[in-house]
Design a protein around this nucleic acid. Structure first.
Lengths: 340, 340
DNA sequence: TTGTAGGCGTTATCAC
DNA sequence: GTGATAACGCCTACAA
């Protein structure tokens, strides 16, 4: 296989036409401008020479890089790889490639990666890092680059977004626990500056009220991050309050795992003493002991939908931003049982 | 506000110099060619205007894209995200960005993604997908693009590579099991067409022999993939052979997890009836029940080292290919116990 | 239907 | 030291 030094000019020469004609023949959009016969001659020459168009030169000319910047808060969180897969798979169908950046939830790093990607002239962004009020989003909006939000959405509906229906998910959680006889239910809420944290917390309060149950302040703690460590810390706090809750609704699976650790430490058994419910049904969470009851939805679909919304935008659609809510379902496993 | 349409020409005009001079002033490498005074004038103009160099145009001219293609067999496997992080973090220090492609272990897909990245003129590749004898590698070698291998290496040492020391790791495993009194040890080996599968299997045989222990064929099964499903299938086979092994050494953690399932199904307890050891110490594996005894090493470091080797190559180093072996250690957890 | 020409933004290579 | 000029590979009015 020869070096990819084969250029359009080479193909043209081989086919006995002008480079411009070769270009037209090779581009699907403009092929109809060229005679059937020369077109096939050019195509033949191209394959013979192993011609690969130079994407860089093309980008410079067309001002489209056919690449999408993707910002992920934490690629180590198993929730995100499937989302990235869904996004990248779908983008690939349209000839786009994803540039993935990890931000560690750090605002400065987020900004740096964003600018890096911008310098590479990505055609759009898919952000899984959105905070409810996010200066980065404001900038992005101003710059006019298409942006879609995954998993987390913004406070206003100005961006096309894909997220799980957090309200519905939390309702399922509370219903499940209530059906098992639980009335004293604690909440380990996620960070309140991102939509998933806030929406689930609010939904929890509202679902509890709807069930005629009280939520004293001592039964709510707020995690500063969706991490195992924070789940552990918060669960300890709740347990220390010592008001005998029989179930815990965690803001996501990571927090639930932290909760497991705290229960272990306190010598409490799950679900015999305390039931635990998570959110996300992330990979491997069913392998824990006990397997975690949680709210499931297709992470892959979130990414795939996000790609679709982005493609719409890139193709010039410009109506109001669509917000897609993926439907969740409760997966009942071993971490929840009847009230003791 | 539209894209930062501010170009080098704008900066030059504002600074009252020729674009070429502005270019020299802004490029660290060539700044010394320009007078101190004009340099600072150009820099000032650049910041005032918010100039961002156009990476695409620069690539076209310099034939360097400052991007690296990364091929991952399965991003959903928690082993890989930390490796990608290590790689990307290190690359970023040098102004490079990683384009990540997922291959699903599928050869066709792998080829497609590779070509896609090539069309984008990546400056090099980091491959975590290498088979021992890999046609893709042959092509890559011929094309002259720098390539490094992560985690899996090739049959010959012709590529700079980073991998865990599989031999040492497996020796630790066998020593550990033998010290616990086990003599009847089964092996669930990974695919033999990749280095991790083959090296660990061979090391197992050799370590067993070294310990004076026999390895009948009935105690070895070969997984067709490093997946939970295959681990389950293989473990069932081994158990069906019914020759009372008391320990299982799995080719990696995924296979070990599959082994857990088969043991559960057979009504056997781990570690009371059968001890299980994995390899990789992948994230979350310590949260299983029982927590898996396994061989640990820094996944992040593998990626980081790979980036370093790649940078060396990109900077023109051309000696024989270095192969870095990361040192493993055994992490003893709850899945191994004394021979029953 | 095909050829011509110009330029996307940057940098390398000349002169001055 | 700085300016001029010419590419890098491709696309697209416009002309023929």
């Amino acid at each position: 296989m020869p070096e990819s030094a084969v250029t359009l000019k080479d193909v043209a020469r081989r086919a006995g036409v002008h480079p411009a004609t070769a270009s037209r023949a090779l581009n699907v959009e403009t092929r109809l401008l060229v005679s059937e016969e020369t077109a096939s001659r050019v195509l033949a020459a191209a394959t013979e020479l192993g011609y690969r168009p130079n994407a860089v030169a093309r980008s410079l000319r067309t001002r489209r890089s056919h690449s999408i910047g993707v910002l992920i808060p934490d690629l180590n969180n198993p929730l995100f790889p499937p989302m990235v897969r869904g996004l990248a798979d779908r983008l690939e169908l349209h000839g786009y490639v994803a540039l993935i950046g990890n931000t560690d939830g750090d605002e400065g790093r987020e900004r740096r990666v964003y600018e890096q990607l911008r310098a590479r002239h990505v055609d759009g962004y898919a952000l899984a890092t959105a905070r409810l009020r996010d200066p980065l989003l404001a900038d992005a909006a101003r710059s006019g680059v298409p942006v879609v939000l995954m998993n987390r959405i913004a406070a206003d509906d100005s961006f096309p977004s894909v997220t799980v229906d957090n309200d519905a998910g939390v309702r399922l959680v509370v219903q499940h626990l209530v059906a098992l006889g639980h009335r004293d239910i604690a909440c380990i809420a996620g960070p309140q500056d991102v939509s998933t944290g806030l929406a689930r917390y609010r939904a929890f309060r509202s679902a509890m009220t709807g069930a005629g149950l009280d939520v004293p302040d001592s039964r709510v703690t707020f995690a500063r991050a969706f991490s195992i460590e924070e789940g552990y810390r918060c669960a300890r706090d709740v347990l220390a309050a010592n008001d005998r809750c029989t179930a815990v609704a965690a803001g996501n699976d990571m927090l639930a795992v932290g909760c497991y650790l705290a229960l272990d430490e306190a010598g409490l058994s799950c679900p015999a003493d305390v039931s635990v419910v998570g959110f996300n049904d992330m990979p491997f969470i069913d392998m824990l002991r006990p397997p975690l009851t949680t709210v499931a939805f297709s992470h892959y679909q979130v990414g795939a939908h996000a790609a679709d919304l982005l493609m719409e935008r890139l193709n010039g659609a410009s109506g109001p931003a669509k917000v897609i809510y993926v439907v969740p379902r409760l997966v009942s496993r071993g971490s929840t049982g009847p009230r003791s």
